[in-house]
């Protein structure tokens, strides 16, 4: 009928664009990952799962995947430990301060990741602030450098991603009734009881969604591991880039990309099905 017709007419341009520019390239990449690298043409027959077999059996790639997952996990935990208390502190602040600090924490999301990571390169680098401070304070003789270390990558990733955790938990806190805390206090509940009985149940959905977002972004991050981790500390995203732009083994790079995509979508969709259903009422 006319309503349906109008709907497809209006959304048609965007949908067509997506079909051409999202579905076709992703489909071609999946196809590429089944092909065989060929020095002459780049990629060709025979088709098969051999690239996946190589990626998932070669210890070089396995180490990269394990490192990627470990970095993402540690980053997520660190974001939880920092972001959740900070969100609660923000929630308890008074009006002008709360808005101001929320902007200070969330604003960096709108600044390029290269720029934010560059700051940490300055801190960690050989002539960096951290090394200089260590020497000046007598902690070490040689300037310590966190460049090209997992610790350095993790710290920089936490800095880039912790705003997502704060936002998620803060939004969950906003959905609740601010009076509930006062009611609990008036009924004689202490600070810890209020946290455990009132705040915690309210923020659990926020913690869940914040963790999923942080984990997903950490596991697929490129700029931060590339700059801080360099060539010595490769993760899945930088390895895929390497296969495409340096080693020129496109089918292998495509296989890594497909694994990354499927893993990422798997985590996000599983979260959507499991957690979001359960907390459906707290979410709206």
């Amino acid at each position: 009928m006319t309503t349906t017709w109008r709907f497809w007419l209006l959304s048609g341009p965007a949908l067509t664009f997506y079909a051409l520019v999202l579905l076709v390239p992703l489909g071609l990449t999946a196809l590429l990952s089944l092909q065989t690298a060929d020095p002459a043409t780049g990629a060709g027959a025979p088709l098969g799962l051999h690239n996946y077999a190589e990626v998932l059996s070669d210890s070089y790639f396995l180490e990269i995947f394990v490192r990627t997952l470990a970095l993402a996990l540690v980053t997520t935990i660190a974001c939880l430990l920092l972001g959740v208390p900070e969100a609660i502190i923000l929630h308890r602040m008074r009006a002008p301060w709360r808005g101001l600090f929320l902007l200070v924490i969330l604003g960096p999301l709108l600044i390029a990741v290269v720029v934010r990571t560059l700051g940490w390169a300055l801190v960690f680098g050989p002539q960096g602030v951290l090394g200089a401070a260590g020497v000046a304070l007598g902690w070490s003789r040689e300037p310590v450098s966190l460049m090209y270390t997992s610790a350095g990558v993790t710290i920089a990733l936490v800095h880039v991603l912790v705003p997502f955790m704060v936002v998620a938990v803060w939004a969950a806190l906003q959905r609740g009734d601010a009076q509930a805390e006062h009611a609990a206090a008036s009924l004689g509940a202490g600070g810890f009881t209020i946290f455990r009985r009132i705040l915690l149940p309210r923020i659990v959905p926020g913690i869940a969604s914040g963790s999923v977002v942080v984990f997903s972004l950490a596991a697929t991050a490129f700029a931060t591991p590339a700059i801080i981790g360099g060539r010595r500390l490769k993760v899945a995203a930088t390895a895929a880039q390497d296969e495409f732009l340096a080693t020129l083994n496109w089918p292998l790079g495509a296989a890594i990309a497909v694994i990354l995509l499927v893993g990422n979508l798997g985590i996000l969709l599983a979260y959507d099905r499991l957690v979001k259903r359960r907390f459906a009422e707290s979410f709206r």
Binding site: F222, A236, A240
Partner: peptide, 8 residues
């Protein structure tokens, strides 16, 4: 979709 996947 991770941007690295879109890049590829």
């Amino acid at each position: 979709v991770p941007h690295v996947v879109l890049g590829v």
